[in-house]
Computed example of a mutant assay.
Amino acid sequence: MAHYRAPDSKREQFRRYLEKTGVVDSLTSVLVALYEQPERPTNALEFVQQHLCAAAQTLADAEALQQEVNDLRQRCARLVEENKDLKTKLQQYEPASEDGATAD
């Protein structure tokens, strides 16, 4: 009986792995897209490959854009801090106006 449970256990682990990594979702969406085609493509395998590559590229693009957003946020925070420091330094060299406000 142990021989029958081991493959089931491995199969279940593999299924969870595929779900966790998004493979099941990707395959499902590609197969749904194929099903919803008004005319069946002559080469279904090529259709699946193209759509999987497009999905992978979209994911890579999204990751690259997310990294760019993070980089730009860090740069913006540095520039805000630098601007604040420069304004502080500038106030040391500019005399206060007569009404008590400083020039910006």
Rank of each mutant, 00 (worst) to 15 (best):
C53I: 13
A56V: 12
E19F: 00
Q49L: 13
D104W: 04
A55V: 06
T88S: 09
P41S: 00
L18W: 06
L72E: 12
K10Y: 03
Q91W: 03
V30T: 00
Q91I: 05
Q67V: 14
P7D: 08
V30N: 04
G22I: 03
A62C: 13
A62E: 15
T21R: 09
R73G: 05
P95N: 00
H51Q: 01
V80H: 03
D99I: 09
L65W: 15
T88G: 02
T102E: 00
D61G: 01
E81N: 11
Q37W: 04
A56N: 13
Q92K: 07
D99K: 01
F47E: 00
R15Q: 09
D85F: 02
Q49K: 12
K20H: 09
L34S: 04
Q92A: 05
V24Q: 06
A60V: 07
Q67W: 14
A56G: 11
A64T: 14
G22H: 00
R73K: 15
E19W: 04
K20C: 06
V23C: 08
A96V: 03
D99S: 03
Q66N: 15
V69P: 07
L27K: 01
H3A: 10
L79Q: 04
T88D: 08
D99A: 08
S97P: 03
Q74E: 12
L27E: 06
R40S: 07
V80A: 12
Q50T: 13
K87N: 10
Y35K: 08
T28F: 13
A33M: 04
A54T: 01
Q13W: 09
V80S: 10
L27M: 04
A60K: 02
L27H: 06
V24L: 10
T28W: 10
L31D: 06
R78E: 09
A2F: 13
P7R: 07
Q66S: 14
E46P: 00
V80N: 11
E68W: 15
L79G: 00
Q50N: 12
P41G: 01
Y93R: 03
R11Q: 10
L65F: 15
C53K: 11
V48S: 05
E19Q: 09
L79R: 06
V80M: 07
Q57H: 08
L65C: 14
V69F: 14
E46D: 12
N83L: 13
L90H: 06
A64H: 15
K89N: 05
T42E: 15
L86V: 12
R15V: 10
V80W: 04
A6V: 12
Q91A: 05
